[in-house]
Amino acid sequence: MKCLIRLKVNGETYEIAVEPRKTLLDVIRNEIGLTGTKKGCNMGECGACTVLLDGKAVCSCLVLGVEADRREVITIEGLGNGVHPDPLQEAFVKHGAIQCGFCTPGMIMTARKLLDENPSPSEEEVREAICGNLCRCTGYVKIVEAVLDVARSEKGGRDAGLLSHR
Protein backbone atom coordinates (compact mmCIF):
# COMPACT_ATOMS: atom_id res chain seq x y z
CA MET A 1 0.00 0.00 0.00
CA LYS A 2 1.26 3.44 -0.81
CA CYS A 3 1.82 6.13 1.82
CA LEU A 4 1.22 9.79 1.25
CA ILE A 5 4.24 11.88 2.05
CA ARG A 6 4.79 15.60 1.90
CA LEU A 7 8.31 16.82 1.42
CA LYS A 8 10.03 19.97 0.34
CA VAL A 9 12.54 19.58 -2.46
CA ASN A 10 14.60 22.57 -3.52
CA GLY A 11 12.03 24.86 -1.95
CA GLU A 12 8.97 23.29 -3.63
CA THR A 13 6.49 21.21 -1.66
CA TYR A 14 5.47 17.87 -3.11
CA GLU A 15 2.73 15.54 -1.95
CA ILE A 16 3.40 12.08 -3.27
CA ALA A 17 1.99 8.61 -2.72
CA VAL A 18 4.99 6.29 -2.45
CA GLU A 19 5.47 2.64 -1.78
CA PRO A 20 7.12 2.30 1.63
CA ARG A 21 10.09 0.37 0.23
CA LYS A 22 11.01 3.04 -2.33
CA THR A 23 14.16 4.96 -1.55
CA LEU A 24 14.40 8.72 -1.41
CA LEU A 25 16.66 8.44 -4.46
CA ASP A 26 13.92 6.74 -6.46
CA VAL A 27 11.36 9.25 -5.24
CA ILE A 28 13.55 12.17 -6.32
CA ARG A 29 14.42 10.65 -9.68
CA ASN A 30 11.27 8.80 -10.68
CA GLU A 31 8.41 10.52 -8.87
CA ILE A 32 9.63 14.12 -8.83
CA GLY A 33 11.66 13.77 -12.03
CA LEU A 34 14.84 15.44 -10.83
CA THR A 35 17.47 13.24 -12.46
CA GLY A 36 20.56 15.23 -11.50
CA THR A 37 20.96 12.94 -8.47
CA LYS A 38 22.65 9.78 -9.74
CA LYS A 39 22.34 6.11 -8.90
CA GLY A 40 25.84 4.63 -8.89
CA CYS A 41 25.48 1.62 -6.58
CA ASN A 42 22.17 1.87 -4.67
CA MET A 43 24.00 0.59 -1.58
CA GLY A 44 25.48 3.71 -0.06
CA GLU A 45 28.97 2.90 -1.24
CA CYS A 46 29.68 5.45 -3.97
CA GLY A 47 28.11 8.74 -2.87
CA ALA A 48 26.75 9.64 -6.34
CA CYS A 49 23.24 10.05 -4.88
CA THR A 50 24.25 12.47 -2.11
CA VAL A 51 21.63 15.09 -1.28
CA LEU A 52 21.10 17.38 1.69
CA LEU A 53 18.33 16.14 3.97
CA ASP A 54 17.46 18.80 6.55
CA GLY A 55 20.90 20.21 5.86
CA LYS A 56 22.71 16.92 6.36
CA ALA A 57 24.55 15.22 3.50
CA VAL A 58 23.08 11.73 3.04
CA CYS A 59 23.15 8.98 0.46
CA SER A 60 19.58 9.20 -0.78
CA CYS A 61 19.68 5.50 -1.69
CA LEU A 62 19.97 4.69 2.03
CA VAL A 63 16.96 6.75 3.05
CA LEU A 64 13.41 5.59 2.43
CA GLY A 65 11.07 7.99 0.75
CA VAL A 66 8.68 7.74 3.70
CA GLU A 67 11.48 8.82 6.04
CA ALA A 68 11.66 12.11 4.15
CA ASP A 69 8.06 12.94 5.06
CA ARG A 70 7.84 16.52 6.37
CA ARG A 71 11.50 17.08 5.72
CA GLU A 72 13.49 19.28 3.42
CA VAL A 73 15.72 18.03 0.62
CA ILE A 74 18.22 19.96 -1.49
CA THR A 75 19.47 18.29 -4.65
CA ILE A 76 22.04 19.44 -7.19
CA GLU A 77 19.25 21.25 -9.05
CA GLY A 78 18.59 23.27 -5.90
CA LEU A 79 22.06 24.78 -5.65
CA GLY A 80 22.48 28.31 -6.92
CA ASN A 81 19.30 30.05 -8.00
CA GLY A 82 18.82 28.67 -11.48
CA VAL A 83 20.30 31.72 -13.13
CA HIS A 84 23.47 32.02 -11.10
CA PRO A 85 25.12 28.75 -10.20
CA ASP A 86 26.63 28.03 -6.81
CA PRO A 87 30.32 29.03 -6.59
CA LEU A 88 31.16 25.32 -6.25
CA GLN A 89 29.44 24.55 -9.53
CA GLU A 90 31.43 27.29 -11.25
CA ALA A 91 34.67 26.20 -9.64
CA PHE A 92 34.21 22.58 -10.71
CA VAL A 93 33.92 23.72 -14.33
CA LYS A 94 36.78 26.22 -14.11
CA HIS A 95 39.21 23.79 -12.46
CA GLY A 96 38.39 20.85 -14.70
CA ALA A 97 37.09 18.96 -11.65
CA ILE A 98 34.61 17.13 -13.86
CA GLN A 99 35.20 14.37 -16.32
CA CYS A 100 32.36 11.96 -16.99
CA GLY A 101 30.27 13.92 -14.52
CA PHE A 102 28.42 11.01 -12.97
CA CYS A 103 29.92 11.53 -9.50
CA THR A 104 29.79 15.32 -9.82
CA PRO A 105 26.32 16.11 -8.39
CA GLY A 106 26.96 14.00 -5.28
CA MET A 107 30.48 15.34 -4.95
CA ILE A 108 29.30 18.95 -5.10
CA MET A 109 26.57 18.30 -2.51
CA THR A 110 29.13 16.80 -0.12
CA ALA A 111 31.49 19.71 -0.72
CA ARG A 112 28.67 22.20 -0.16
CA LYS A 113 27.90 20.61 3.18
CA LEU A 114 31.56 20.74 4.14
CA LEU A 115 31.92 24.42 3.32
CA ASP A 116 28.68 25.30 5.08
CA GLU A 117 30.04 23.72 8.25
CA ASN A 118 33.68 24.54 7.84
CA PRO A 119 34.32 27.56 5.63
CA SER A 120 38.10 27.23 5.78
CA PRO A 121 38.92 23.53 5.49
CA SER A 122 42.47 22.31 5.08
CA GLU A 123 43.32 20.09 2.11
CA GLU A 124 43.18 17.07 4.42
CA GLU A 125 39.75 18.08 5.68
CA VAL A 126 38.49 18.33 2.10
CA ARG A 127 39.89 14.89 1.32
CA GLU A 128 38.31 13.44 4.46
CA ALA A 129 34.97 14.99 3.61
CA ILE A 130 34.79 13.66 0.06
CA CYS A 131 36.33 10.25 0.71
CA GLY A 132 32.88 8.65 0.58
CA ASN A 133 32.28 10.00 -2.90
CA LEU A 134 33.95 7.78 -5.47
CA CYS A 135 35.30 9.20 -8.71
CA ARG A 136 36.94 6.92 -11.26
CA CYS A 137 37.99 9.62 -13.72
CA THR A 138 39.79 12.53 -12.09
CA GLY A 139 42.06 11.23 -9.35
CA TYR A 140 40.34 13.88 -7.17
CA VAL A 141 43.17 16.40 -7.69
CA LYS A 142 41.09 19.06 -9.39
CA ILE A 143 38.08 18.38 -7.20
CA VAL A 144 40.15 19.20 -4.11
CA GLU A 145 41.54 22.29 -5.86
CA ALA A 146 38.06 23.49 -6.78
CA VAL A 147 36.71 23.09 -3.24
CA LEU A 148 39.72 24.85 -1.71
CA ASP A 149 39.40 27.67 -4.24
CA VAL A 150 35.75 28.24 -3.31
CA ALA A 151 36.63 28.08 0.39
CA ARG A 152 39.18 30.82 -0.10
CA SER A 153 36.91 33.08 -2.12
CA GLU A 154 33.78 32.48 -0.03
CA LYS A 155 35.67 33.17 3.13
CA GLY A 156 37.08 36.32 1.59
CA GLY A 157 33.57 37.28 0.52
CA ARG A 158 32.09 36.58 3.94
CA ASP A 159 34.79 38.44 5.77
CA ALA A 160 34.13 41.41 3.54
CA GLY A 161 30.39 41.05 4.13
CA LEU A 162 29.70 40.38 0.46
CA LEU A 163 27.93 37.07 0.75
CA SER A 164 24.64 36.79 2.48
CA HIS A 165 24.46 34.05 5.06
CA ARG A 166 23.61 30.73 3.52
Binding site: T35, E77, L79, P85, Q89, F92, V93, I98, P105, I108
Partner: peptide
Protein backbone atom coordinates in the same frame (compact mmCIF):
# COMPACT_ATOMS: atom_id res chain seq x y z
CA UNK B 1 44.92 26.99 -23.81
CA UNK B 2 43.52 25.76 -20.48
CA UNK B 3 39.92 26.23 -21.50
CA UNK B 4 37.15 24.72 -19.37
CA UNK B 5 34.70 22.16 -20.70
CA UNK B 6 31.92 23.57 -22.89
CA UNK B 7 29.51 21.00 -21.48
CA UNK B 8 30.64 21.62 -17.91
CA UNK B 9 27.70 23.73 -16.75
CA UNK B 10 25.26 21.03 -17.94
CA UNK B 11 27.04 18.53 -15.72
CA UNK B 12 27.49 20.58 -12.55
CA UNK B 13 23.88 21.75 -12.52
CA UNK B 14 22.55 18.21 -12.90
CA UNK B 15 20.98 18.98 -16.27
CA UNK B 16 23.15 16.62 -18.29
CA UNK B 17 21.03 13.62 -19.25
CA UNK B 18 22.51 10.15 -19.00
CA UNK B 19 20.67 7.15 -20.42
CA UNK B 20 18.93 6.22 -17.18
CA UNK B 21 17.68 9.82 -16.87
CA UNK B 22 15.70 9.54 -20.09
CA UNK B 23 12.07 8.61 -19.58
Amino acid sequence: KRLPRLDGMEIVTGKAKYTDDIV
